[in-house]
Amino acid sequence: MCSITKTKLSYEEINHVTVATFGHESKIMSIKELKGGFFNVAYLITFENNMKTV
Rank of each mutant, 00 (worst) to 15 (best):
I4F: 09
C2S: 15
I14F: 03
E12D: 11
K27W: 05
L9N: 03
I31K: 02
I14K: 00
F39R: 10
E13P: 00
K8T: 06
V19Y: 10
K8M: 06
F39T: 09
N50I: 10
N15F: 02
Y11W: 07
G36I: 12
M29Q: 15
F47P: 00
K52G: 05
F22E: 03
G37F: 04
T18M: 15
V41L: 04
T53N: 10
A20C: 15
N40T: 05
T53S: 11
S10E: 03
S10T: 15
N49Y: 09
I28V: 13
E25M: 13
L9H: 05
T46R: 12
I31L: 07
N50R: 14
Y43V: 02
I4Y: 09
T46I: 08
E33L: 06
V19K: 14
N49R: 12
L34I: 12
T46N: 10
F47K: 02
L9R: 06
I28Q: 02
V41C: 07
E25D: 14
V17R: 01
E12C: 05
A42W: 13
T18K: 07
A42M: 15
N49Q: 08
I4W: 08
E33Y: 07
S26H: 04
T7L: 06
C2P: 04
E48I: 15
T18F: 09
G23W: 09
N40Q: 04
L44E: 04
E12L: 13
N40Y: 00
S10Y: 05
V41D: 00
E48R: 11
T7W: 00
G36F: 08
E48V: 15
S26C: 10
V17G: 03
I4N: 10
K6N: 07
I28P: 01
T53H: 08
F47Y: 14
I4S: 09
H24P: 12
C2V: 11
V17Q: 03
I28C: 04
F22M: 07
F39I: 14
I4R: 06
K8N: 08
V41M: 02
G37Q: 05
L44C: 06
I14D: 00
F38E: 08
V41T: 12
T21V: 12
C2A: 15
F38K: 08
I31D: 03
M29N: 15
T46C: 07
S30F: 04
A20R: 12
E12F: 04
N49S: 12
S10P: 09
I45C: 01
H24N: 14
L34R: 10
T5G: 07
E33C: 09
K35T: 09
E13F: 02
S10K: 09
E12H: 08
K6Y: 08
T5R: 07
K6P: 07
M29F: 15
V17A: 06
E25H: 14
L34P: 05
T21L: 12
E25L: 13
K27Q: 10
F38P: 02
I31R: 02
T7K: 06
H16M: 11
G37M: 08
I28L: 07
T18G: 02
I14E: 01
V17L: 06
F39S: 12
A20G: 14
